[in-house]
Nucleic acid binder design. Structure first.
Lengths: 217, 217
DNA sequence: TGTTGGGGGACTGTATACAAAATCGCACCG
DNA sequence: CGGTGCGATTTTGTATACAGTCCCCCAACA
């Protein structure tokens, strides 16, 4: 029963396509409003239409694309208004995630969070800003995971990617500032301080909101 | 083949199948852990495997089914633990939705909420308990919609259905009690009382949690 | 009796084919 | 000159076909 090397051949194309389409959207190579023609995407990615269709359904329920019956899918447009709405949601969900993470903190989750922080610090120092944005999302995802709430994690992850998307569309990324706040959040979680963790998380999101809104002016 | 017998309109089969599978799961006709064999479902619903596959992807990202690559999909099992987790999430999200609904309340949203309340009261008086459960979900969904936050609505709806699912698995439905609380929530929203609305919503969820946990004993 | 290995059936993954609907261009009519 | 209807093309929706993999059963052997 030759165990294969992890994944490469066994990862369904549909997952590859989903990830790739999401990347294309997040990276801005597919612009909001742009139509997603199944045939063309299939050709571009070298697969048949079927995996593409399944990927589109997934991205639709995640909110990255909008599909109209018989008229196909298009990259979702996010209005300034929707961007603002997203911050309300983040504050609530990430606050909850931080509180639960603090409540249930374990040596393992502590180590995991610190690992992301360290990797990110290195990236900031090297000025690899693309990596920093991804690591930012990874840190927040790690907090969600540390909450031990499976459904919360399921909901938070697409939301984080969507938030990252919003940010990408606004000029810069307030990287260093963001990471000092992360450290504070990490310490509260590591100390098992529920109230502190929640407060740090919501404050962090609100700071991001202010930064975002300033850019809009 | 397989002309659209289910929906008289031009509604894509994939949507019909998604809704129908969700219904089967929520109604308990498909039990947690039960495998979802594409062929069989396709035969049962009188369609080909393709719409079924797309429906399964959607239900997977909503958390109703779990799919393992090359091994297919199965109805998600929800442990008692996960049920508890769900209440945390509901408290946070529905609290937020109630607050925003109160902030942005309009005559239209007020009317919409009251309409659901009235329909529900009639159903309670007639003892149509199946309808009551659906109307309960509908009321909470209406609150989410009244928040005017599109992404919040997108996230809340599957969560509500999931919560309804959890309840179905516990014996009874604490219908009448629940609806007095709804009236309180409605009044706070209608009055534009943000703090009151949020408080009502979270208290309502916590009451539901206690009722649920008592059943478990 | 327990283990191993292989064969066959069952099911998923992916591609291709065909049908139906929407869109666009263009001629024709007012 | 603008609107309208019709056909060709594009694109989605659905079905079918085939290949690859997993799994279970059972027989052979230690």
């Amino acid at each position: 029963m030759a165990e294969n090397t992890v994944g490469s051949t066994h990862r369904p194309l549909r997952d590859v396509v989903t990830t790739e389409l999401r990347r294309l959207i997040l990276a801005g190579e597919l612009n909001p409003g742009e139509r997603l023609v199944e045939d063309r995407l299939a050709g571009r990615l070298g697969v048949s239409r079927n995996p593409v269709r399944e990927a589109i359904r997934v991205l639709a329920t995640e909110g990255f694309v909008e599909v109209t019956p018989r008229r196909g899918a298009a990259v979702a447009r996010l209005s300034a208004e929707e961007a603002g709405e997203l911050f309300d949601l983040r504050a609530a969900l990430e606050g909850l995630a931080a509180r639960l993470a603090a409540r249930k903190v374990t040596p393992a989750s502590r180590a995991r969070l610190r690992a992301v922080l360290d990797t990110a610090r290195a990236a900031v120092e090297d000025g690899r800003m693309d990596d920093v944005a991804d690591l930012n999302t990874a840190f927040h995802a790690a907090v969600a995971e540390a909450s031990g709430n499976a459904y919360l994690t399921l909901v938070i992850e697409p939301m984080l990617r969507r938030a990252q998307w919003v940010f990408r569309q606004t000029a810069h990324y307030r990287a260093s500032h963001s990471w000092t706040e992360h450290v504070g959040l990490y310490e509260a979680i590591a100390a098992g301080d529920e109230d502190g963790a929640q407060a740090h998380a919501t404050a962090h999101v609100e700071a991001a909101r202010r930064s975002y809104e300033q850019d809009q002016d």
